[in-house]
Simulated scan of single mutants.
Amino acid sequence: MSALPHEAYERPHRPSRPEGAPVVDRRSGIRAAALRLFAAQGYRATTMADIGAAVGIRGPSLYKHVASKHELLAEIMIGTMEQLIADNATAVADTDDVREQLRRAVEAHIRYHARHRLEAFVGNREIGSLEQPDQDRVLAGRSDYERRFRELIERGTAERVFRVHSARIASYSILDMGIGVSSWFHEGGEFTVDQLAYQYGDIALRIVGGASRR
């Protein structure tokens, strides 16, 4: 299991909101508080009362904005997969060069995991907490996402640009790098997000035997 990002240890901030704040903003704040709590103490140990206290909403009023904590978990995890897939599609859209497509896909993968560490942590740990059909929806998204990397590697191998024995193992190895980044990266460290993404792009190309062209 990945190490818990240090942000999750911080006590959830209890923001003040003006009277009559838009429902969409309130909902977003509730989701963000739930994410911090799920990361810090786990989904099962988090109660709706905890979430309400974190955003300053008491008792039944919370249920005007969200039906259950499971609804929040599903929203977080489904949203994560949808964003990863959308970022991947955008990254590879404007080039046909398979080497460049893989590099860009990896860079998008690393950027997401560096910038959304709690989402990555909760998504990695709490898949078993999702109820059906949401669990199947997230698992289908994961399969789709992995397939996108695997098919790039298979195409690169067919074009003799890459050299791998197993495109699936190579894709799993590349995807695992993002999970690792989410466990240790923090802003203000030795590398910026862009520097990190570019270096991991190089590493991924070495994994598939298609070192980048300088």
Rank of each mutant, 00 (worst) to 15 (best):
G52D: 01
A167V: 04
R142I: 13
Y43S: 04
D87N: 14
R103I: 08
R150K: 13
Y200F: 15
M77R: 03
Q199T: 11
F185L: 06
H13I: 15
G79I: 02
E71H: 06
V98K: 04
R11V: 15
D144G: 10
R117C: 04
F185G: 03
G141H: 02
R11L: 15
L139I: 13
N124M: 12
A45T: 09
R160N: 14
S182K: 02
N88C: 10
R117Y: 04
A32R: 13
R168K: 10
L37W: 02
S2F: 12
F191N: 11
G210M: 05
L118Q: 04
A105L: 13
V161Q: 06
R163F: 12
A211P: 14
V208C: 06
I153E: 00
G141Y: 03
S16F: 10
G210T: 06
R115M: 10
R168F: 08
S173D: 11
R214M: 13
V92M: 11
T46S: 09
H13S: 14
V66A: 06
Y9H: 14
I153V: 09
D94P: 03
R168L: 14
H109S: 07
S171T: 13
A21K: 08
K69H: 06
Y200E: 08
R150F: 00
R163D: 15
G188I: 07
K64A: 13
S166G: 08
S166I: 10
A8I: 08
V24Q: 07
I203E: 05
A49D: 08
M1S: 15
P5H: 07
I85S: 08
W184S: 14
A45V: 05
E126H: 07
A120V: 13
D94M: 09
G123C: 09
D87R: 14
V66P: 00
I78F: 00
G209T: 10
V161C: 05
R148F: 05
Y172T: 14
G20V: 12
A74G: 03
V122K: 00
H113V: 06
Q132V: 08
R58I: 01
A49Q: 10
I153L: 06
F38V: 02
F121P: 01
T90H: 13
H113L: 10
G29P: 11
Q41C: 09
E159Y: 04
L73R: 00
Q199K: 12
I127P: 00
G180Q: 03
R115G: 08
A40W: 00
G201F: 07
L139G: 01
R27L: 11
R117H: 07
